[in-house]
Amino acid sequence: MSQAHSAVEARHLVKGYGIVRAVRDVSFEVSRGEIFGFLGANGAGKTTTLRMLCGLIRPTAGTALIDGFDVFAQPMEAKARLGYLDEEPFIHPHLTGREFLDYIADLYRMPRGPERQQRMERLLGLFELADRDGELIGAYSHGMKQKIGLASLLIREPSVLLLDEPTNGLDPRSARLVKDLLEELAARGTTVLLSTHILEVAQALCRRIAIMDHGNLVATGTMEDLRAQAGSAQATLEDLFLRLTAGPESSALIERLLAPQP
C-alpha cells in the first residue's frame, strides 16, 4: 500500500440499534506509527466504534479503512493487517497458550518453521506464560487471558493494533510491560488505537487523543489542542475529560448521596 493512506480512517461512522444511535457521525484518522488514545465514559460508543473499525459490526452508515482498505469491501486485505484485542479477549478455553498461538498463526497463514516457533517462545517468555505449558487457557486468570490475547496479536505482527482496555486486569509490572511494548511497537511503525479508562496511560502514551460522549466525538487532538479547546492551559487530561463529557460534578453527587434524609 502507498504510504499516503492513514493507517486507520473512520469516515462518518454511524451505528444505530433501532431508534438508539450508539455512534453518531464519527470521523478521525490515525497516522502510521502513532499511538492514538480513545477515551469516553461507559456506554459512550468506544467499543462499538472499535468493533466497526475491525469489521465485527457493520456500520449503519460510513466507512472504516485500515491501511487504505475498506474493512467491509476488502475484508481479507484489511483483516490481514489488523489486530484487535477485545476488553474480554476472544480465546479458546480448551487450548494451552502455545496451542492457541499456533492456531492464530495458522489462521493468518504465517509461514511455519523455526522462526515462527522462536517468536512464539519469545512472546510466551515475555508475558511470563512459558512455564504454564500444559495449563488450559480456560483456567487462566483474567490478567493471563489478557496477556495471551496480546501475544496472539503480536505473534503475527499486524501493522495496526486496535486495543480495547489492554491493561485491564494486568498487575502493575505487566501493565508497565504492555505500555513499554506499545511505545516500542509504535517506534517501529505499528499503529496503535488504544481505548482506555486509565487516563494516566492515555496521557503518557498517546500523541493524540479522541474523546467520545454519548456516541459523538467531542474532541480530537494533542493535549495542547484539547487544552486550547477547553480554554485551560494547565488542565490535566482528567480535567479535560470531565469538562468535555459534562455531567454533574462528582462533589455535588457525593453531597447529594450523603445528605441527611428528610
Binding site: Y108, R109, P114
Partner: peptide
Amino acid sequence: PRVATRGAGSPGFA
C-alpha cells in the same frame, strides 16, 4: 510439541 516446519499455515487445517 510437534511443529510443522514447512509451508504456510492453513486456516482450514488450523
